[in-house]
């Protein structure tokens, strides 16, 4: 059970980044390679807030969300918007560039060693459902599930969510219905960036505050998305949790060298046999 808890925590982190991928993808059709770096952005913001400024935790979280949102907006405005309508796959290159740039900046400023986070240092350990789990980890799971449900509800039930879906289906048609597609896209980057960064401090209590935390996170969150089906929030959540559990069980029973390989094999199998994922909702499109 302790292993299961550990898997769920790791999985919650993947799920969060996968939700971020979805928000951006649904609103703009762009796959944001840099999404996972916002965990790092949030973590470093919190670390600086705690150790240099001495802010309380709630302020650090708000700060992380603001920084994440601003970076998300900058990313869209500087690296995505200009590419629209050119047809090529260049946003893959530019978002990978943004990801590299963000982790490169962290490396250049703070070096390659992990930084202290400054919060949650003496978190209690709970005995829960026959397993042991740290309070912050439990908090991470709960926070991610809550965020996913809220985002999912907003996306499916409100005008904002429907408008975002409409622009992803057909940008011009959406614009003709009076949807501001440009604002929609920036908004999605801001929300995705802010949300993921806001939970960065919590996640960093698990992953360390280090410049390259986003690299593996990016691909594993993608696995979560592939498992759950691109565009589905429920899929992102369940896919993320599933991937986390598989990873930790592989590490426990096969050895830590196997944990990433197990996820890679899972990804290949999913793409091979259920390429649409378990909860896909996109329909086939004809000319």
């Amino acid at each position: 059970m302790t292993t299961l808890w550990a898997g769920l925590v790791v999985g919650a982190i993947y799920a969060l980044v996968a939700v971020g991928y979805n928000i951006v993808y649904i609103a703009s059709g762009v796959f944001n390679f840099a999404q996972a770096q916002f965990v790092m952005v949030g973590a470093f913001t919190a670390s600086v807030a705690a150790t240099t400024i001495g802010l309380p935790l709630w302020a650090a979280i708000i700060g992380a969300a603001i920084v994440g949102g601003i970076i998300g907006a900058l990313e869209e405005i500087l690296a995505i918007r200009w590419l629209r309508g050119r047809g090529a796959h260049n946003e893959l290159v530019t978002t990978l560039g943004v990801a590299t740039l963000l982790s490169g900046l962290a490396l250049a400023i703070w070096g390659s060693l992990p930084r202290p986070l400054g919060y949650f240092e003496n978190a209690r350990v709970l005995d829960l459902l026959g397993g042991r789990v740290v309070v912050t980890d439990l908090l991470t799971i709960v926070a991610v599930i809550t965020v996913t449900i809220i985002v999912g509800q907003v996306s499916n039930r409100t005008m904002l969510g429907l408008a975002s879906l409409a622009t992803s289906e057909d940008r011009e048609a959406g614009a003709l219905r009076g949807i501001n597609a440009g604002a929609m896209t920036v908004g999605a980057f801001v929300i995705a960036g802010g949300l993921v960064a806001a939970l960065g401090p919590l996640i960093a209590s698990k992953t360390y505050v280090i410049y390259n935390v986003g690299d593996l996170l990016a691909v594993k969150a993608f696995v979560a998305l592939a498992v759950g089906g691109i565009g589905s929030y429920r899929g992102a959540l369940l896919g993320g949790l599933g991937v986390g559990v598989v990873e930790i069980f592989a590490a426990r029973y096969l050895g830590t060298a196997w944990q990433n390989i197990a996820i890679f094999v899972l990804l290949l199998l999913i793409l091979m046999f259920i390429p649409k994922g378990l909860f896909a909702r996109r329909v086939a499109r004809a000319i």
Partner: peptide, 14 residues
């Protein structure tokens, strides 16, 4: 190096 490569990808990609 990473900063430089990242900038190169963004600017080059654009």
């Amino acid at each position: 190096a990473l900063v430089f490569f990242g900038l190169l990808l963004v600017v080059g990609g654009l």
